[in-house]
Amino acid sequence: MSERPTVHRNQIAEARNVLGEVIARARFGGEPTVLINRGKEAAVIVSYEDYATLRELRDYLEELEAGERSSDKTNARVLREALDIAKRRALDSS
């Protein structure tokens, strides 16, 4: 199992000053940066690969949920639950 990447946190104004570094960390190091605005998480800069993976997972989930077979519905439920758990874990750790 691979290690979890380092997650950086920056105020938006700070990140703007080092945007090249923030992008390089995401792109080459797989290290996301959480952007903070007025003390709250506003957005995340991630690699395009991570973004594309998330989009594919969402699209796949929508296909399963729209499917006719009961196995599609079961797989959609399992995937939705896993994504919900991951979301809660991510929000709890921030």
Rank of each mutant, 00 (worst) to 15 (best):
I85F: 06
L83A: 08
A15T: 09
L35K: 10
Y60A: 09
K73N: 04
S47A: 12
Y51E: 11
H8I: 08
K87G: 06
L64E: 10
L57R: 08
V34E: 07
E81H: 05
E81Y: 03
R27A: 15
A86S: 15
L57G: 03
I36P: 00
A90I: 02
K87W: 10
V18P: 01
I12C: 06
Y48P: 03
R38S: 10
S2R: 09
V34W: 15
L54H: 11
V78R: 10
N10G: 03
L79M: 13
G29H: 14
A15F: 12
R88E: 01
S70H: 07
S47K: 14
R4F: 04
E65Y: 04
E65T: 07
K40D: 02
D84W: 04
R89L: 02
S71E: 15
A24R: 06
K40V: 03
T6P: 03
L35G: 13
P32K: 04
E56S: 15
V22W: 05
N37F: 08
I23K: 11
R25S: 05
I12G: 03
S2H: 14
A26C: 11
D72E: 15
R69P: 00
G29N: 05
I85P: 07
A26D: 10
G29M: 02
V7M: 05
V44Q: 12
S71P: 01
I12L: 11
R25G: 03
R9N: 08
E3T: 07
E3K: 06
N17H: 12
L91F: 14
L83F: 12
A66N: 11
T74C: 02
S47P: 10
S2I: 13
V44C: 14
G67E: 12
D50L: 00
R88Q: 08
L61M: 01
A86I: 06
R69H: 14
E63R: 08
Q11P: 07
A76M: 04
K87Q: 06
D92W: 08
T53D: 08
L83T: 02
R88M: 00
E81P: 00
G20K: 01
E41V: 15
K40R: 05
I12W: 08
Y51C: 01
